[in-house]
Amino acid sequence: MWPALLFSVTLTSASTHSLTYFFTAVSGDIDFPEFTVVGLVDGKRFIYFDSNIKKTVPKTEWMKQKEGAGYWDRQTQLAAGTHHAFRNNIQAARGLFNHSTGVHTFQLMYGCEWDDQTGATDGFRQEGYDGEDFLTLDLKEMRWTSAVQEGFSTQNKWNNNRAYLEGRRHYFNTVCVEWLKKYVEYGKSSLEKTVSPQVSLLQKSPSSPVVCHATGFYPSGVTISWMRNEQENHTDVSHGELLPNEDGTFQKMSSIRVTPEDLKKNEYSCVVKHKSTTVRKTLTGKEIRTNEDQTGGSVRVGIIVFAVDVFIIICVAGCMYLKKRREDGQL
Rank of each mutant, 00 (worst) to 15 (best):
G167Q: 07
K44V: 10
E192H: 10
G119F: 04
S254Q: 04
H239F: 09
G119C: 11
V57E: 11
A14G: 08
E185P: 00
K264L: 12
E192M: 12
E230Q: 13
D309R: 13
L139V: 15
K204F: 00
I304V: 10
E292Q: 05
Q251N: 05
G318Y: 09
T76W: 00
S255K: 08
K181N: 02
I90S: 06
K181Q: 09
F124A: 08
H234W: 03
F23T: 13
T136D: 15
G302Q: 05
T235A: 02
S207H: 02
C176F: 01
Q91L: 01
C319I: 01
K193H: 07
I224Q: 03
R45M: 05
V57T: 14
G28R: 11
V305Q: 05
I47Y: 04
G81T: 00
D309L: 04
P58I: 11
M253S: 13
P58Y: 08
N266A: 06
R280P: 00
F106P: 12
Y183H: 04
G111P: 10
F306P: 00
A317Y: 09
K286D: 14
P33R: 14
K286N: 15
T136L: 15
V26T: 15
Q126F: 06
S207R: 04
G151H: 03
R125E: 13
L201Y: 04
V308I: 05
G123L: 02
N173Q: 12
L322V: 14
T60P: 01
Q203R: 02
R45C: 01
R94V: 00
E292D: 07
K188H: 13
K54L: 09
F172K: 11
T105L: 15
V301L: 02
L78V: 06
C112F: 06
Y321I: 13
K188W: 08
L135F: 06
T56S: 10
N156R: 15
G187W: 09
D116H: 11
P209D: 04
E150T: 12
W179D: 05
V308D: 03
T136V: 14
G102H: 13
K286F: 09
L40K: 12
F250Y: 15
C319Q: 10
T290A: 08
D133V: 13
T16D: 11
G95D: 09
S13D: 14
G68S: 05
S269Y: 01
I304N: 11
A92I: 01
A147W: 15
T282G: 06
R125S: 12
D122H: 12
K265W: 03
C212G: 00
V272K: 03
W62M: 00
L242C: 10
V38C: 13
V103S: 12
M320R: 04
